[in-house]
């Protein structure tokens, strides 16, 4: 029995919430219910799975490191002002975020392939995986850090200058520590994006066990031959993501 408009409003809120919760919870439940629990550990410890896991972790951390090394200077430059050059670069850097990764893969192939415009011959190497993952992951890092820098109160940098600190020292000892939450959030999102990268990788880097077959590719392959193994691999990724969100819950949650 609905007693008041207030109750009605509460229900109007609750119904879509429940629907959304189901939308997210049911797939997870599906994985858990269908997982071959008796074979879980042997499957997890099998060579192909460990290879894929090792490769995924190596490549995603490398991609996060590359995003930091290249993305930080870009973010700093973008945050320094606004001009058409900066806007153009921002669009360029953000593009992979909105493009389907497969398009990124094709574009990377045409740029860094053997017959691409650079002729670098990157495809089919682990380096290509890192490049593909950096390509799709770095935009997240750059945008997050640029937002952090723009919100940074520059008077602190001014204070550092009056204390005798040059721009370089000020950046590393004042600005960067003060925007550390943005930097770490950016790194996490970039890393997670790299870990989950599929389309650009399979198109650009190929799919070979041990050198380019990361977890998502292994899941893709396993899904057609050993669906149980695909479920185990998927659960491993879910677990990694869950652990990460747990570790970063303070940074992540809007509630402090």
């Amino acid at each position: 029995m609905i007693r008041s408009r207030r109750d009605l409003a509460a229900i109007a809120l609750l119904v879509p919430v429940v629907a959304a919760v189901l939308l997210f919870a049911l797939p997870l439940l599906g994985l858990l219910l269908r997982a071959p629990w008796s074979d879980f550990v042997p499957t997890l410890l099998s060579t192909p799975v460990l290879d894929a896991l090792r490769l995924s972790l190596t490549c995603s951390f490398s991609a996060a490191a590359c995003s930091f090394a290249l993305g930080l200077p870009v973010a700093v430059w973008l945050a320094q002002g606004s001009s058409w050059q900066r806007n153009a670069v921002r669009v360029l850097v953000t593009l992979p975020m909105v493009l389907p990764p497969i398009v990124g893969g094709v574009a990377l192939l045409l740029a860094y392939g053997r017959n691409g415009i650079t002729g670098l011959s990157l495809p089919f190497t682990t380096t290509a995986v890192v490049v593909a993952e950096t390509y799709v992951a770095m935009p997240f890092f750059v945008l997050t850090v640029e937002a952090g820098l723009r919100a940074f109160d520059r008077r602190y940098a001014a204070a550092a200058a009056t204390l005798g600190s040059g721009p370089w020292r000020t950046f590393w000892t004042v600005t960067l520590p003060m925007i550390a939450p943005s930097v770490s959030a950016g790194l996490v999102v970039a890393w997670a994006r790299a870990l989950g990268e599929f389309g650009a990788t399979i198109t650009f880097a190929g799919n070979l066990k041990g050198s380019t077959r990361t977890m998502p590719l292994a899941i893709y392959v396993a899904f057609e031959t050993h669906p149980d193994a695909a479920i185990v691999l998927s659960l491993v990724l879910v677990l990694i993501a869950a652990v990460l969100l747990f570790l970063l819950r303070d940074r992540w949650s809007p509630v402090r």
């Binding site: 001014a158 200058a161 040059g166 003060m178």
Partner: peptide
């Protein structure tokens, strides 16, 4: 002469101590 080379001590209105 950039501020870091002026040897001028400035105490800001809102102190601006480095929070970290």
């Amino acid at each position: 002469v950039p501020p870091e080379e002026r040897h001028v001590g400035l105490v800001f209105q809102e102190h601006l101590l480095f929070p970290h």
